[in-house]
Simulated assay, not measured.
Amino acid sequence: MNLYMLRHASAGQRRSNPVLDVKRPLDKAGKRDCLLLGNTLTSMNVSFDMIVSSPLKRSLQTASLVGTETGYEQKIVLSDALAPAATYAQFEKLLMECSGVESLLVVGHSPNLVEFLGTLMQPAQQTRASRPPASIRLRKGAIAKLNLERGAATMQWMLDPRVIRTLYANSTTRSRRKISRK
């Protein structure tokens, strides 16, 4: 399975009231980053067989925007296994339920999505409880591709929204390298 782990894009300031925070939408920068990420993934010929999102609004918006840009036409599945309070056991159960899917995108939150990513990359011989998960920085709007074939997951690549914005800005401002002629 190719597992794509995407942290929701920028959604402004966290609300102190948890009921209001659940409904917090993406901000303008977050929406722009989702569209750029979707375009980048399309140009890399990445497509998804299934998209699973946290039920919180900002994650669902991220999944929807990226899915639309990559040509995903099925319904986005909502799962509490990707909610901010989810445990690794819940996430592992979700992966088992999706085991027949070849290309899976999951959209969630930090810190648990980052912990899930680090735990997946630990070697199977080591007990996951005895050693802390690998430390990986996954910014808002960043995506990581993992290959889940045998043993520990292998990270294939990771894209940060800052890198995507820079690549997009440089590719659109000039199509040809500047060459000095003296």
Rank of each mutant, 00 (worst) to 15 (best):
Y4G: 11
R14I: 09
R14K: 15
R14G: 08
V19Y: 02
V19S: 02
K23T: 01
L26N: 09
D27V: 04
K28C: 05
G30W: 10
R32D: 04
D33Q: 15
D33K: 07
L36T: 14
V46E: 03
S47T: 15
D49G: 15
S53T: 02
L56W: 02
L60R: 15
T62G: 04
V66E: 01
G67V: 00
T68S: 07
K75T: 01
V77Q: 09
L82D: 03
A83I: 01
A83G: 00
A83C: 02
P84T: 04
A86L: 06
A86G: 02
A89D: 01
E97M: 02
S99W: 01
G100P: 06
V106R: 02
V106Y: 08
V107R: 01
H109C: 05
L113E: 02
L120T: 03
Q122H: 06
A124K: 07
Q125M: 05
Q126D: 03
A129R: 04
S130G: 07
R131E: 01
R131Q: 03
P132N: 07
I136N: 08
I136D: 06
R139S: 13
K140N: 13
K140T: 11
A142L: 08
L146G: 02
L146M: 13
L146R: 05
E149Y: 06
Q156C: 14
Q156K: 12
Q156E: 15
M158G: 11
L159D: 00
V163C: 11
T166P: 07
A169K: 13
S171F: 12
S171N: 15
T173V: 14
T173C: 05
R174A: 12
R174Q: 14
K178L: 05
R181S: 08
K182P: 03
